[in-house]
């Protein structure tokens, strides 16, 4: 008999492919099955996770996964919505040199469309030489705050979400602001 994936499995599989593609190729836009954080939550989050959400709208879904809702500094996954307060970044778990995997995964809403806003130049693993991208909707100084926080291999990994579009910026990516 031919095994058939459940709709949940298909959705999680497709969304993870997008997330893995996005983190492997920083700056490229990948597409989730549908808009919103729910797609990421369904693929990654369960009772093994400690989660912080700045978006009350996600609370019900996150609780349903069995994840423990915690303060930002204790969270392994953070859903920050449209980030307004840069101070949150200072609370992120960065892992340790021994266990860099303890560094947080952070999902933030941002504008990923081509517009004339801040242009960033990305380089590092996943990028052949450099890649210029345009990201809007993040607080000023976001990228310099990120640079100051990350002490590779300690750091945090970002997913920027714009509807169903997702861009990954792992800690290994160098971001220059023009």
């Amino acid at each position: 008999m031919q095994p058939i994936p459940t709709p949940d499995e298909t959705r999680a599989n497709q969304n993870f492919a997008a997330l893995l593609g996005a983190l492997s190729r920083p700056g490229q836009i990948h597409r989730l099955a549908a808009p919103g954080e729910a797609e990421i939550i369904q693929a990654l989050i369960d009772r093994e996770c400690r989660v912080f959400s700045a978006d009350p709208g996600l609370g019900a879904m996150l609780r349903q996964t069995g994840a423990l809702m915690v303060e930002p500094q204790e969270a392994d996954h953070l859903f920050l919505g449209a980030l307004s307060d840069l101070a949150l970044l200072n609370l992120l778990s960065l892992g340790s040199d021994l266990y860099p995997d303890d560094g947080a995964t952070v999902v933030i809403q941002a504008g990923l469309s081509q517009s004339q806003a801040q242009t960033l130049r990305l380089s590092g693993p996943g990028i052949e030489t450099t890649l210029d991208v345009t990201i809007t909707g993040l607080p000023n100084e976001f990228w310099s705050a990120r640079r100051d926080l990350i002490r590779y291999p300690m750091g945090f990994d970002l997913f920027l979400l714009d509807g169903a579009d997702v861009m990954g910026i792992p800690r290994s990516t160098m971001v220059e602001v023009f």
């Binding site: 993870f16 997330l19 893995l20 983190l23 990654l44 860099p100 995964t105 750091g155 990994d157």
Partner: peptide
């Protein structure tokens, strides 16, 4: 999945 993402990062 979570660990693969960290491995890539």
């Amino acid at each position: 999945r979570r660990k693969m993402l960290k491995a890539v990062a």
